[in-house]
Simulated scan of single mutants.
Amino acid sequence: MPRPYVVEYRVYEGADALARAAAEYFVESARTAAAARGLARIAISGGSTPKRAFELLANPAEPYRKAMPWEQVQIYWVDERCVPPDDKDSNYRMTREAMLDKVPLKPEQIFRIEGELEPEQAAARYETAIRGQFRLEGAELPTFDVLALGMGDDGHTASIFPHTDAIHELGRVVVANHVPQKDTWRVTLTWPVIVQARDIFFLIGGKDKADPLHRVLEGPYDPETLPSQLIQPRSGLLRMLLDKDAAALLPAPDAQGAGKLEIAR
């Protein structure tokens, strides 16, 4: 059943401003988590805008690299394609090349999805790794400190695509999800895990996202068609960083670029 929540969104002029806002958000949320709990467990997604943000975080000429509490960070992935780690489509490869190879993170701080394995095995191994790090028992779900999401032009998020089995998964931490639309398998965190995170934000840019974003936030509740509607944070607050093209059909933000929606379906 849908639950009420608040969406706070910020709208930025273009791709560079959006990437800089994302880099700053990663730093601020990681510092908050590290100060509160001594550790910042961050789950990240792929895509061109996250890539730009990761490059900024890794750039010694930018302020973000120095401000990030690298020694207290753990990096996880929200989802992964079922490809080897050196494949051009690998989310891990993108992140490694943009950031991981350039920042002071040790291998034991990085928890990738082994996309080169058989999908169910990759999902099981990733769930085992998460359970071990979070010391979970039984049906417990992990609580990530920061979790970054994107959204596809079909309304999918993570690798939870329209009309796929992952929409209905309630008990597991990680699943292998067959995506007929792309004739492929993906490995993804489940939506009950995603909504458990302390700080969840969407990073969305592009004209092709305006209509699906409008339907996700202001249209009828239909998560079978628009899986992003499943992301109703337990905290009651969902943040979105948007460029002006993606935000074109939402209520106009204020002079500072801030907008707010109360979702109660």
Rank of each mutant, 00 (worst) to 15 (best):
D101Y: 12
Q72L: 10
I204Q: 00
I231A: 13
Y9P: 00
A43Y: 02
L238Q: 01
A17N: 07
A21L: 11
A15H: 11
H163F: 13
A210W: 00
S29V: 10
V6E: 00
L249T: 05
L189A: 11
G150Q: 02
R265P: 15
Q74N: 14
V179T: 01
D79S: 12
V6I: 03
Y64M: 07
F26N: 06
V187F: 03
A166R: 00
R172N: 04
D208N: 05
L56F: 11
E224L: 15
H214C: 08
L230P: 03
Q74L: 13
L170R: 10
E8Q: 13
K207S: 06
D87P: 02
W185H: 13
A19C: 08
D153Y: 09
V83L: 11
L213R: 00
S29T: 15
A36C: 04
V7Q: 02
F144E: 03
A124G: 12
A246F: 06
Y126I: 07
D86I: 09
G46W: 01
A53S: 11
M1W: 12
N91A: 08
V83W: 10
L147N: 02
A166G: 07
I204C: 01
V83D: 09
R20L: 15
P223R: 05
P227F: 10
E71K: 13
A30Q: 08
Y12Q: 03
E116M: 11
R215Q: 05
H214G: 00
D154F: 00
M1S: 15
V11Q: 01
W185V: 01
R234P: 07
R93S: 09
E140N: 15
V195M: 04
Q181S: 03
A36E: 03
W77Y: 13
K260H: 15
S235Y: 11
D208C: 01
L241S: 04
R135F: 11
Y76Q: 12
P63K: 08
A34E: 01
L230Q: 06
I200V: 12
F134R: 03
E80Q: 12
P107T: 07
M151G: 04
S48Q: 15
D89L: 14
L136A: 13
V195R: 08
K106P: 09
V175Y: 00
D79I: 05
L250K: 09
L147E: 00
A176Y: 02
A23T: 08
V78S: 08
F134D: 08
R31I: 05
C82V: 10
F161L: 02
T188D: 03
G236W: 10
T188A: 12
P63D: 03
P227Q: 10
G236K: 04
P192L: 05
K182D: 13
T190Q: 07
R215L: 04
V216G: 02
G132A: 14
A15C: 08
E140H: 13
L249R: 09
D183A: 15
R131M: 12
R265T: 11
I167K: 01
T157R: 00
Q133N: 13
R31G: 15
K207F: 03
E13M: 10
P162Y: 05
P233G: 05
Y9E: 02
A34M: 04
H163V: 06
I42H: 01
A61D: 14
A67W: 07
E224D: 15
M94S: 12
K66V: 06
P63C: 09
I167L: 03
L226N: 14
